[in-house]
Structure formats: structure tokens, C-alpha cells
């Protein structure tokens, strides 16, 4: 048993060390570690998250846009209770993960010289995109105009609490039918 445990820990540690390197050949293999057994310990580096991501959406009835952009409230100012209890951080992290994955997909499509149409198809059928669309649809169903037939969302990046730099859109979806 001792040898067996030594082997498991040894292999796990060795792969964890290799995992820290950003080799191109490793990127594909890393995508198959769905569970995340092998960690990547580069917290807030080399590119620290110095911006906030927001989801805004608007509604349309058939061909007419009927609402202004509405933000889904995900980011709130830190309270001291967050030190003990902070469930919302998982939603913020999910949004960051999804946006990073979408940006990677766009970069990959551009690198492969894909047409805009094919790139849009690729994006709109990806899991991160669908997760965001799903969240927007749920928020809309609970909060806003029930007469809307279509919905469009945009992912927006802002640059800090006191920043004067204007927020910029990252990705805008086409209109999706909601009923």
C-alpha cells in the first residue's frame, strides 16, 4: 500500500509541476482535465483581472426593440460578511471563465481565418455562450417584459470602480427567440 500511495502522490505532483508550464502541446491535453485534478497555480497572473465583466440585455417584439439595455446585477460592493460567506463569487467566476473561453474561441477562429458567419456559429453553440444566454433568459423571465419575443445580450468590460475610462462591449449576441 505504501508504494501505491507513493506512486499516486508522486505522479500527481509531477504532473502538477509540468502543468504549470504554458507549453502549446499541453494546452490540448489540459482541456481533457474536466475535473481539474491538476491545478494551475497562477493566481491573478500573468494577466491580473483588472476589469469587471457585466451582462446587459435588451428585448424586442418581433422586429422592434422595445427596451433599453438592462444590466443583470452580478457585481456588488464587498461587505464584511463576504469574508465568511460569499456564494456569489462563484457566479462572478463563472462569468469570467465563460468570457475568457469565448475570447479564446474568437482568437482561435481568427487564427484559422474563419468567416464571420462560421465564427458566429462556433460561438453561439459553445457551452460558455449558452450558459450566459441561459442566465440572461432566466433573469428576463423573472424580471422583465413578458411580451418580448426576442432577446439580445452584450458582454461589457468596465475598468474599475473609480475609472473614467468608458466601458467597452466585448461580444454582442444576435437576437434570440425567447418564446
Amino acid at each position: 500500500m505504501d508504494i501505491c500511495v507513493a506512486f499516486i502522490f508522486g505522479v500527481w505532483l509531477l504532473i502538477s509541476i509540468i502543468w504549470q508550464f504554458q507549453f502549446k502541446s499541453l494546452t490540448t491535453i489540459k482541456e481533457f482535465d474536466f475535473i481539474g485534478i491538476f491545478p494551475n497555480w497562477t493566481f491573478f497572473a500573468p494577466n491580473p483581472g483588472t476589469s469587471d465583466y457585466h451582462i446587459v440585455y435588451r428585448l424586442a417584439q418581433n422586429d422592434t426593440v422595445i427596451t433599453e439595455w438592462t444590466e443583470i446585477p452580478l457585481i456588488s460592493y464587498r461587505t464584511y460578511s463576504n469574508s465568511v460567506w460569499n456564494p456569489e463569487k462563484r457566479k462572478v467566476k463563472l462569468l469570467i471563465d465563460c468570457i475568457n473561453a469565448l475570447i479564446k474561441t474568437v482568437q482561435k477562429c481568427r487564427k484559422e481565418n474563419m468567416s464571420d458567419l462560421y465564427m458566429t456559429q462556433n460561438l453561439c453553440t459553445s457551452v460558455p455562450y449558452l450558459l450566459i444566454l441561459n442566465a440572461v433568459t432566466k433573469f428576463h423571465q423573472n424580471n422583465t417584459d413578458k411580451n418580448a419575443t426576442h432577446l439580445q445580450f452584450t458582454l461589457v468590460e468596465s475598468f474599475g470602480i473609480g475609472s473614467t475610462e468608458a466601458a467597452k462591449p466585448i461580444i454582442s449576441s444576435p437576437f434570440h427567440r425567447v418564446r
Binding site: 500573468p46 491580473p48 483588472t50 457585481i75 456588488s76 464587498r78 462572478v92 475609472s163
Partner: peptide, 24 residues
């Protein structure tokens, strides 16, 4: 990873992270 980052070396990273709503 941080020492390889310009934002960390220049001293901007901490303020810019703390200035976000997500982690600040």
C-alpha cells in the same frame, strides 16, 4: 507568474485588482 507580468512589476496590479467590483 507575477514577476513575468508587467502590471505586477510596475506596481499597478494590486491597485487595479482592488479597484474592481469582482475582487476589489
Amino acid at each position: 507568474a507575477k514577476i513575468l507580468s508587467k502590471k505586477w512589476r510596475s506596481g499597478d496590479a494590486v491597485y487595479e485588482i482592488f479597484n474592481t467590483g469582482s475582487y476589489g
